[in-house]
């Protein structure tokens, strides 16, 4: 199976690899996994407490090229969005952007789940 150019681009030069201190109040951490293949993905967001805008995002993924590309793209997309806007990112948008084949759709689902898990974690620790 051939990877699309965009997948190769994100895979060979992943954006925003790394991590934040997960105990910081303005950080939300999402840790998700895909039992189909054993991939593990961690995605973190850093939120401006005043504006609720996602100012930065980091990820680390142990998985195939498509899983790495999906999470790399997800960190790019959430940056600058409000947490509500980020919540509405759909895996199908990732599939389209990266031209993922059907067997790799679960990688995009994983990235969507990771965003939602990170936001849920942020919210749970910042309930007003």
């Amino acid at each position: 199976m051939a990877y699309s150019e965009k997948v190769i681009d994100h895979y060979s030069e992943p954006r925003n690899v790394g991590s934040f201190d997960k105990s910081a109040a303005n950080v939300g951490t999402g840790l998700v996994g895909a039992p189909e293949c054993g991939d593990v993905m961690k995605l973190q967001i850093q939120v401006d407490p005043e504006t609720k805008e996602i100012v930065d995002a980091k990820f680390k993924t142990f998985g195939c090229g498509s899983a790495i590309a999906s999470s790399s793209l997800a960190t790019e997309w959430v940056k600058g969005k409000s947490i509500d806007e980020a919540m509405s990112i759909q895996n199908t948008e990732i599939v389209e952007e990266l031209s993922l084949p059907p067997v790799k759709i679960h990688c995009s689902v994983l990235a969507e789940d990771a965003i939602k898990a990170a936001i849920a974690d942020y919210k749970s620790r910042n309930e007003d």
Partner: peptide, 11 residues
């Protein structure tokens, strides 16, 4: 059990 095994296998 099957799910956990998949992650171990991947590792």
């Amino acid at each position: 059990h099957l799910n956990a095994e998949r992650y171990l296998r991947r590792l």
